[in-house]
């Protein structure tokens, strides 16, 4: 039985797609193997190596270095915003027991809210349990320095690290769906907020946009400053606080397609 239709049309284009996808995966694997999930602290000037002949970027690195002392790179695997954001947020919380306790309460209430929105209880529970487990482990450590070391270790263990990312993706999706009247105007095309969440927020490795950041901030009750560094001719990096007028507790560096963590 010759699958003519299949081989002529569907499979032909399918194969090509698959080849492209395979190539893409190969590239992704190589990147993944060469970058830590969350790296060590580095001086801002370490960026110079990447742009040694690039006048525009060198100027901007100078500007960045006048405001920030350090950065921490994250693996560019499409999860970088969620990983960087969660890491930076928790790292900051470890300096203040009261803030940490308040945050713990927010997370504790979040599972129920997600289940009410229609997320399947047991899959949500899986990621929630890990998230809470990590918070507990960090909260039990006496000194902030030791807790930060543990945070760094956990975020570089793929299992924990990915589960943290998944839970924040779910929280972000939940926030978008709960406030869909507000967020729908940011979504291009015919897609509903729920469609958008299924396609762009919940799946792993999907990159984040402005709308993801807004919703993640709202879900975590956190302000974030994003410093945009790109090819634009201005000598100064554009900064954006989300939500607007907030006192940011997390600072992120955005270069096209990628987020890293910044330190004042």
């Amino acid at each position: 039985m010759g699958d003519e239709f299949e081989s002529d049309t569907v499979v032909a284009s399918g194969n090509q797609d698959e080849l492209i996808m395979q190539q893409q995966r190969q590239i992704e694997r190589e990147i993944s193997e060469s970058t830590a999930l969350v790296g060590d602290l580095e001086p801002i000037a370490s960026l110079n190596n990447e742009y040694s002949n690039d006048v525009v970027y060198l100027e901007k690195i100078k500007d960045l270095a006048s405001k920030y002392k350090y950065m921490r790179r994250t693996r560019p695997d499409g999860n970088c915003f969620f990983r960087a954001f969660t890491y930076a947020k928790l790292e900051r919380l470890l300096d203040n027991k009261i803030d940490f306790a308040n945050f713990y309460k927010i997370v504790e209430g979040s599972k129920h809210a997600l289940v009410e929105l229609g997320f399947p209880q047991f899959t949500v529970e899986d990621f929630y349990d890990t998230f809470i487990d990590v918070l507990k482990r960090l909260g039990d450590i006496k000194t902030a320095t030791d807790a930060k070391k543990e945070l760094h270790t956990l975020f570089n263990e793929q299992g924990y690290s990915d589960y943290m990312v998944v839970y924040l993706r779910l929280l972000t999706s939940g926030q978008l769906q709960r406030d869909q009247d507000f967020y729908s105007c940011f979504i291009e095309g015919e897609r509903t907020v729920a469609d958008f969440c299924h396609q762009e927020v919940e799946p792993m490795y999907k990159e984040s946009d402005h709308i993801h950041i807004m919703a993640a901030c709202a879900a975590m009750n956190t302000g974030v400053r994003v410093v945009y560094m790109d090819r634009g001719t201005s000598k100064i990096n554009i900064e954006h606080d989300l939500p607007e007028g907030t006192q940011p507790s997390v600072h992120l560096l955005y270069r096209p397609g990628h987020y890293d963590i910044l330190y004042l």
Binding site: T123, R169, D195, H198, E202, M204
Partner: peptide, 24 residues
């Protein structure tokens, strides 16, 4: 397909919404 391949976006074998870890 007759090869047994299932074309479904959540399996990554077709376009559309990808797999999410919240699925089972």
């Amino acid at each position: 397909y007759s090869s047994g391949k299932v074309c479904l976006s959540i399996l990554g074998t077709w376009n559309g919404p990808a797999w999410s870890p919240a699925q089972q």
